[in-house]
């Protein structure tokens, strides 16, 4: 008798656990919709430097900052980018480490791995490829608008 009761209790618990899955899933989906900010992405164009300033080797460090409305407040967003050329093409590398999102720093003395993430010793070469450390993906390349003339401004599109 006691044994049977226990078995019934166990079965009920199993059914409850199974029923909880879709309920929790639904609650999570609802929560995600309610708590996620509406994705109104406004395009930002920022002048970084003149085309002639971008070095073929080595990196040019720039900080872009722009204003963005976030909820009620207009916030200033600022982030570092590194400019260089890859096979002649101008590229801008994001300073956000692809491992856990720490800020990558420029070590001007190193030529082989000039970009260092201090958090877990990640190292990247001047083209953003991983040299060492826990990161596996290369640094993100940001969208640019490259001018025709040498003294035109390289624009970053965000």
């Amino acid at each position: 008798m006691n044994d049977q009761n226990e078995r019934r209790g166990f079965l009920l618990a199993c059914v409850g656990a199974l029923a909880a899955v879709p309920i929790l899933g639904g609650a999570f989906a609802a929560l995600r919709t309610m708590l996620s900010p509406a994705g109104g992405t406004s395009e930002v164009r920022q002048s970084l430097c003149k085309l002639s300033e971008v070095p073929a080797e080595g990196l040019l460090e720039r900080t872009v900052s722009y204003r963005l409305r976030r909820g009620p407040a207009v916030e200033t967003i600022s982030r570092k980018v590194f400019l260089t050329r890859d096979e002649g093409q101008v590229i801008a590398l994001s300073s956000r480490c692809t491992h856990l999102g720490c800020a990558v720093n420029l070590d001007k003395e190193s030529t082989t791995a000039p970009l260092i993430c201090p958090c877990h010793d990640g190292r990247f070469d001047a083209k953003g490829a991983v040299i060492d450390g826990p990161a596996t993906r290369p640094l993100e390349r940001l969208k640019l608008e490259i001018p025709e003339e040498e003294d035109g401004s390289v624009l970053l599109i965000l």
Binding site: T63, S65, I77, S78, R79, K80, S95, T98, H99, L100, C102, A103, V104, N105, P118, C119, H120, D121, P134, A135, T136, R137
Partner: peptide, 27 residues
């Protein structure tokens, strides 16, 4: 100031072991 990247955050003492594990495991 997100643009000021000279700063390196350090974890609380009770998270040090986890930080070291993150260091060891590849991405």
């Amino acid at each position: 100031e997100p643009g000021d990247t000279a700063f390196e955050a350090s974890p609380e003492w009770h998270f040090l072991w986890l930080n070291q594990l993150l260091h060891i495991f590849p991405g």
